[in-house]
Amino acid sequence: MVALEWLARIAQGLRPIQVGAVLALLMIFLAFEDRRVSSLALLVQYALLGLLTLPHVYAAVALARGVLAVGISMMLYLSAWRAQRQMARREREAALAQRGRRRPGMLFNLSALALGGLLAYGVWSAYPLALVPRPLALAGYWVAALGLVVALVGEGPLRRGIGLILIVSGCEGLYLAVERGLLVIGLVSILDVMLALALVYTTEMWLEAQREASAL
């Protein structure tokens, strides 16, 4: 609990520029084509939003949500690892020019994500939320915008799903600053887990379908 109080003090002292630096790092993580790196980005955003919402929720709730975030990130990382391995094998078998394809992909992702970030910054500057602290509002808008971009340009259920989780996380971050009801926070956490489960399940089915298609 002492550690949480110390983290809450750090969160209260954070300025938008510092939050912006972490969000830029998040953007770089998300730009990678490798699904494992993208799923690590989830952990970064959970850490950032968790830290920023810490002063607004009960300590026990924050702790529970932290454990949940680590669990969800691990679950998606494992799924990403399996997906990446299978996709790499398929691409090797098909003798595709991997290196030539990856670089433009990452550049494209980075520019699309930067555009999303810029949009989020514009919305944050133009429509300040009265009840939400400015650094948290910036993080919420930015994460949701990055999620929208990833969901739109991402290929396959897992990458698109990571985008969905980012959108949901961004909106949750904004909402948890104003809502303290235990029922609502509990339901929001259950939805996080269910969304992650749905993504993992859909990805597994997709991988199975890919295997079936390549076996034919």
């Binding site: 396959g156 259920p157 969905l164 939805l191 749905a198 399940y201 859909t202 379908a209």
Partner: peptide, 30 residues
């Protein structure tokens, strides 16, 4: 929130390892 919980469970009924069902499930979920 409860409605969304039901929708997430329901969306998991769509994917299957055959044909395009997994991608349709992913789009439906989105």
């Amino acid at each position: 929130l409860l409605f969304l919980g039901g929708a997430l469970s329901a969306a998991m009924l769509v994917p299957s390892p055959h044909g395009e069902a997994a991608m349709i499930g992913s789009r439906t979920l989105t």
